[in-house]
């Protein structure tokens, strides 16, 4: 029967994936709705729109690029699950590649589809469990932890620590394209020191993409390995 062929399995995965994307979207949107109802508040729509205006041009563009770039690598089931559970570049994608290499199967093959989905589903379940256990264990101590005078400087400097550690790998791998955007942003901050990171990153992303494109067209990135 056609239902048992792999083609039909892939088609069914796409049907399940479409349903899971829409239902996950609804569940996700219920979260702020539930918060507003529980706290009996409704924040100013103009404030929300102002915040979104800073994010949408970048995040929604990145979302399109990510769907196009990651889908071929993650397979059908892996794609739907990864976009629902997040942390794709830093977790789900390397996890799927690792599992496919371990099982000696190719992405975009029938076996690759299965192994990639198993790897990403496992990764999502483990991440959810680690977060849930960590948070429930940590919640009772949070206040004493963050209000502790000794630890306060560490929490005040969480952004340099997080982005320094996260950026190090990118800067080392893509050092050729890193200098220009950072110099541009430093110049912007010289003239507008209090500009928030969410506004500043527009300048950074535009400078970074245009700078990289220029270097690419001039052949300055030809020797960069995949």
């Amino acid at each position: 029967m056609a239902k048992n062929t792999n083609k039909s399995y892939i088609d069914r995965v796409h049907s399940w994936g479409r349903i899971s994307s829409v239902t996950a979207l609804c569940a996700l949107l219920m979260f702020p709705v539930a918060i507003c109802l529980y706290l009996d508040v409704f924040p100013s729509i103009s404030g929300i729109l102002q915040g979104l205006l800073k994010l949408i041009p970048t995040y929604w563009t990145v979302a399109v690029v990510e769907v196009i770039v990651y889908t071929p690598m993650l397979g059908a089931g892996g794609t739907y699950l990864s976009f629902v559970t997040g942390n794709i570049a830093n977790l789900k994608l390397p996890c799927a590649i690792n599992a496919m290499e371990g099982a000696d199967v190719k992405a975009n093959s029938e076996e690759g589809e299965v192994v990639s989905t198993i790897a990403i589903a496992t990764s999502a379940i483990v991440t959810t469990a680690v977060l849930a256990i960590g948070i429930l264990a940590f919640a009772p101590f949070l206040e004493s932890f963050t209000e502790n005078a000794l630890l306060k400087p560490a929490f005040a400097q969480v952004l340099p620590a997080l982005f320094g550690a996260l950026g190090a790998g990118y800067f080392i791998k893509h050092w050729r394209i890193s200098f220009f955007p950072i110099i541009v942003m430093i110049i912007v901050l010289v003239f507008a020191p209090t500009m928030g990171a969410s506004t500043l990153l527009f300048f950074g992303i535009v400078a970074s993409v245009l700078g990289a494109l220029f270097m690419y067209k001039k052949g300055m990135l030809d020797r960069v390995k995949d």
Binding site: L162, S178, I205, V209, A212, D226
Partner: peptide
């Protein structure tokens, strides 16, 4: 370019904003 450099370039722009603020932000 899009396949190989667009995503890293966007990430670097994003991360770089926080790095630049840690260096000279007010």
């Amino acid at each position: 370019f899009i396949n190989k450099f667009a995503t890293p370039a966007i990430f670097i722009g994003l991360i770089g904003a926080f790095v630049a603020r840690a260096i000279i932000g007010g």
